[in-house]
Amino acid sequence: MADLTGRTMLIVGATSASGRAATGVLAAAGARVVATGRSAPRLRPLAELGARVETLDPTDEADVGELATRLRRDGVSVDGLLPLVGGWRGGGGLAGQTEADYRALEPSLTALRHVSRAFDGDLRASAAGRLAVVSSTAVACPLAGGANYAAVKAASEAWTRAVAHGYAKAARDAGAPLRAAAVIFRVRALDGLQDRLAASVARLWDAHPEALNGTIIELTDDDPAGGTP
């Protein structure tokens, strides 16, 4: 197991099955975990795992900004960011790709944009900052019935690669070594892979940021290691 003692991890959308798995694994590895969700009652099991819990609407830019201010006021600086806001709506071929379905999927991109901007300074200042997002194999092979979903995931990947470019440029301009990395995990479906995702996120601190930044890591059912950062 990776040793994350001294690292602070922010998991956004932590009340999902993947969020609960990540909270457990990261806390067990020694990380201080800040777990967010919209529902205080659903956050209680994460508090029992040792996480600091915060209610948050990640699609509300002001709410995200208030969380960032609150954490900094408490002396908490984030070393790792894992946005897990997502969901699936699709089917019906291209004609079935309704505007309502697209709008229901779009919050995952909105949340990523808000939290990555709000904590960009923290991740750049960290001795080893990491942003990890979960995408889909649908980006590489989109289907008509999942066009809305693939489009949102593709936009999220583009945003993450832009974050990676920002990390590299900042280090280059400062004449300093790269310390932060933004990584994309692609899955066909998360069901059954929550523990592998959590373990793979924890192992991001075992790899050099130059080897990680801007990369895509595929997690598959037949990969017992859970992805190789």
Rank of each mutant, 00 (worst) to 15 (best):
L212S: 09
D222V: 12
G24H: 09
A182Q: 07
S126A: 13
R52L: 09
A28V: 08
L112R: 12
T5F: 04
D191I: 04
T5E: 06
R70E: 13
M1G: 13
V134S: 02
V34K: 04
T137W: 03
R186D: 02
A27F: 02
L204F: 07
H165K: 13
D60N: 12
R161E: 15
A14W: 08
A182C: 12
A95P: 00
A100I: 01
P107V: 03
G175K: 03
T23S: 11
A95Y: 03
R161M: 14
S77N: 11
A182F: 08
S135Y: 11
L56F: 00
A170N: 05
K169N: 07
P41I: 01
A21S: 14
V64G: 02
G214A: 14
P177K: 05
A118P: 14
A182S: 07
V183D: 04
T69Q: 11
G175T: 07
Q97K: 07
D206A: 14
G146E: 15
T23P: 08
Y149R: 06
L219Q: 02
L82N: 01
A31W: 07
S156T: 12
G91I: 04
Y149L: 04
R32G: 01
C141V: 13
P41G: 06
R117L: 08
D57T: 08
R196H: 14
C141K: 15
V163W: 08
K169W: 02
L10W: 05
D195Q: 14
D223G: 10
R161S: 10
F119K: 10
D206K: 09
Y149E: 01
G65L: 08
K153G: 07
A199P: 00
A47T: 03
A144V: 06
R196T: 01
G90I: 00
A168I: 06
P45C: 09
A100G: 12
L26R: 02
G65Q: 00
R117I: 00
Q194M: 05
